[in-house]
Simulated scan of single mutants.
Amino acid sequence: MKVLAAMSGGVDSAVAAARAVDAGHDVTGVHLALARNPQTYRSGARGCCTLEDSRDARRAADVIGIPFYVWDLADEFHEDVVDNFVSEYAAGRTPNPCLRCNEKIKFAAVLDKALALGFDAVVTGHHARLGADGLLRRSVDLAKDQSYVLAVLTPSQLGHAMFPLGDVTKADVRAEASDRGLAVADKPDSHDICFIADGDTRRFLGERLGTASGPIVDAASGAVLGEHGGAHGYTVGQRRGLHLNRPAPDGKPRYVLSITPVTNTVTVGPVEALDVVEVRGERAVWLSGPTTVDCQVQLRAHGTPTDASVTVVDGTLTARLREPARGIAPGQAVVAYRPDPDGDIVLGSATIASTVSAAAPAA
């Protein structure tokens, strides 16, 4: 097949491209220029938006022996990922930008362009598996598994995707890169959010949303306990950074329970109040099987799966949890998995819109 290898400049995408060549495919490498000014995003080897990354990708393509191009997708990335990230926080939610990047950039803008140019598929270095049955599965390296951030893809998009690294560990990838003579073999993994240059999310959001102060309110009594400098600086489940002068009656710490942008209010309470028994998601993508199923759900990146009963109706996914889960933030994804001897199968996903507290009275 004629395939396009998305090369970030990291070790995973370089080895994925090399493996695609070994498999007999006609491979062309492409680096996505995602920053309008590469110096304003990540620096060094921390992300996927730097000049260093572009050069690393080009050198890897030279070693592999494939054509290489740079595609400027900065405007699309800024609108679909960065602006979305900011607007989600402004609405009191906690987004996962990697989900949006996969959905809107790598497997929408890039895949659409690749297909228009006559390519059959896009190859990436994600740690996930696509079986011969076309089903998305977890990686064999559960510590690096990225099926959670790929679960937003549609069956059509998965039909034009290739993930050559799903059957190896990250240690295997680095060893293989070294054997192939790829200079990125020991390059550090990216961390945090690639478009926030110094990793300071609160500062980044404050520059774009302002620092309007508002009340921090106790959930039980309604009393104002303190003041914050911008609700966007908080997320559900957060404990640090509240700077409350009035301790709880029992002396235990308080946690963020909810954020209300309309009134610019942060509501706090005891850790037990973070327990939820139901999660409701919107914009559901269902990939496999019946839309009412007992399965497992993962509620945050690298979170522990929990047993649930899942129902999908008219684009809304409802997951009723067998055991309460703690600190689930709207804006994240709920991803449903079916345990399988060959690796957990991704059934579908949705963006978390709301939750039902374990302490809520029965309807």
Rank of each mutant, 00 (worst) to 15 (best):
9 G>A: 00
10 G>A: 02
13 S>M: 01
18 A>V: 00
21 V>E: 06
22 D>T: 08
25 H>L: 08
31 H>F: 10
33 A>M: 05
46 R>P: 02
49 C>R: 15
50 T>K: 04
57 A>S: 10
57 A>K: 04
58 R>G: 06
59 R>L: 05
64 I>N: 03
68 F>G: 00
69 Y>T: 13
69 Y>S: 13
71 W>M: 01
73 L>V: 14
79 E>K: 11
79 E>C: 10
91 A>V: 08
102 N>C: 01
103 E>Y: 09
104 K>Q: 15
109 A>G: 07
117 L>C: 15
117 L>D: 14
123 V>P: 05
133 D>F: 07
134 G>S: 02
138 R>W: 11
142 L>Q: 15
144 K>P: 04
146 Q>V: 07
147 S>E: 08
148 Y>D: 01
150 L>N: 01
152 V>C: 15
156 S>V: 13
157 Q>D: 01
161 A>D: 13
164 P>I: 03
165 L>D: 04
166 G>H: 05
167 D>H: 12
171 A>S: 15
178 S>G: 14
185 A>L: 03
187 K>V: 04
188 P>D: 06
191 H>V: 14
195 F>Q: 01
195 F>L: 03
197 A>D: 09
198 D>Y: 14
201 T>V: 15
204 F>W: 13
205 L>S: 11
208 R>E: 02
208 R>A: 06
214 G>Q: 03
215 P>D: 09
225 L>T: 11
230 G>W: 03
234 Y>M: 09
236 V>S: 00
238 Q>A: 11
240 R>K: 14
240 R>S: 15
240 R>P: 02
250 D>R: 13
253 P>Y: 02
256 V>R: 09
256 V>A: 09
256 V>T: 10
260 T>Y: 11
261 P>N: 03
264 N>D: 09
266 V>D: 01
267 T>D: 06
268 V>D: 12
268 V>S: 11
270 P>D: 03
277 V>T: 12
281 G>T: 05
283 R>T: 08
285 V>Q: 05
286 W>K: 09
292 T>H: 14
294 D>C: 10
296 Q>A: 11
296 Q>L: 07
309 S>G: 01
315 G>T: 08
315 G>E: 03
316 T>D: 05
320 R>Y: 02
320 R>P: 04
323 E>K: 15
326 R>Y: 15
329 A>N: 11
331 G>T: 12
333 A>W: 06
333 A>R: 07
334 V>N: 04
336 A>E: 00
337 Y>F: 12
342 D>I: 08
344 D>H: 07
356 V>A: 13
358 A>S: 04
359 A>F: 07
362 A>R: 10
